[in-house]
Design a protein around this nucleic acid. Sequence first.
DNA 1: GCCTAAAATTAGGTATAGCTAAATTGAGTA
DNA 2: TACTCAATTTAGCTATACCTAATTTTAGGC
Lengths: 231, 231
Amino acid sequence: MSPRWRSNGNTESVDNYLKAIFYLGGLEECRVSIKALAERLCVAPASVTNMLQKLAASPAPLVEYERHRGVQLSAAGKRRALEVVRHHRLIETFLYRVLDYPIEEVHEEAERLEHFISERFEERIAAKLGHPTIDPHGHSIPTMEGKMATRESILLADVVEDGTFVIESVSDRDAQNLRLLEACGIVPGARMQVSKSASLEGYSVRIGRSSKVFALSCEVALDIRIVRPTK
Amino acid sequence: MSPRWRSNGNTESVDNYLKAIFYLGGLEECRVSIKALAERLCVAPASVTNMLQKLAASPAPLVEYERHRGVQLSAAGKRRALEVVRHHRLIETFLYRVLDYPIEEVHEEAERLEHFISERFEERIAAKLGHPTIDPHGHSIPTMEGKMATRESILLADVVEDGTFVIESVSDRDAQNLRLLEACGIVPGARMQVSKSASLEGYSVRIGRSSKVFALSCEVALDIRIVRPTK
DNA sequence: GCCTAAAATTAGGTATAGCTAAATTGAGTA
DNA sequence: TACTCAATTTAGCTATACCTAATTTTAGGC
Ligand SMILES: [Mn+2]
Ligand SMILES: [Mn+2]
Ligand SMILES: [Mn+2]
Ligand SMILES: [Mn+2]
């Protein structure tokens, strides 16, 4: 058997390349370097070059690739990347809300299953969840049509003056962290009073009306995105 | 990338070979021929020989294979086969009961996902469903420890005299059929009055207290297993 | 404009899991 | 016992997707 083919003719590996290009390209959809892709995907640069050449040479290419000049998603590639992201985030939401997964376990399971669920499965969990727009980490879930809401937010690590903020999202990449953050009440939507602690290199935060104060390292502050309160 | 490795070190393909040997070996766990496996798995006989040689040569073999004498599962192979069957049937039950899948769509989705869910996922859906023992087709779900209840049942096609029976299970392999059978009320647990229709080659059946009578072909009667009513 | 080093590419090789076609084996029949 | 043929095995090939090592290219510093 060759690797399993998804409905649209992609393999799991191809999906993961598309997602990585989408992520690394950012909102401005910049060209992405081979090196950055290799690091993100934990494969050798030569493997990336190989895959991109194959993808770009196909009759309906998912990527635009030029030798030595990096790679961008084509319209079709972006569409597919957004579909996989939708799968990922819907699955995470489902695992968290319906199957009562601990928050730190949803990402790994979603990372696998996102490639193997059918459109029917996608549709059924979306319906079961009431067509959610935000996943348990606070990330936007793209619509079925491939539109994703963008919200303006900043890294907690970029905060320069003390103040009150609302937590927009937390990174899904470090399971350990995630467990701790949730235990502190640092979850999307929570209100947080932040003071930059000059002595310690980091932040003290107070969540909601709680009197407890938590110390966050600069490291951890890179995993938290915040917005100004609407009021 | 090589094909995806499951937690226990198997690939999807290996899992499918184990399941096929388990199924074709029957309750008596007979040796299974290469030809039968090739047909069931829709691959060439040479591919089967290849795979079995590799499986049998591994340090902790999942199968016992002798040249020209067919193949049987080892204890480890049987354990794994039962685990995959458990995944399959739990997933089917979950899709049917929680995600409201139409009965004829559960099998195909389960056939794929059975290889990719984690032990956590298995545990969570089992809990959500109240640790079910029967799937929507009426098949026994093996326990976490790898025990599967066996019930005595016969094919409707083997019925020689008219009578009243309880439907034990219906085959999950023909989606079209399944849709029709469910529409007629021919579902596991239903009580069914059967008369062998000598003129037509087939059966007339009446479900429960209904006055409607359905005609079933001998073909379809091969897809239905029944037991005598307990009372 | 040249030199160097990092980035990218090419070359050559691995494993999985398929395939076809050719050779072999062994079970049942004459 | 010998023959025949279906089942099985072997040999040689393909595709995906990874690897390392060697080579080439580009871009920055001078
Ligand atoms: Mn993934
Ligand atoms: Mn997420
Ligand atoms: Mn399967
Ligand atoms: Mn079933």
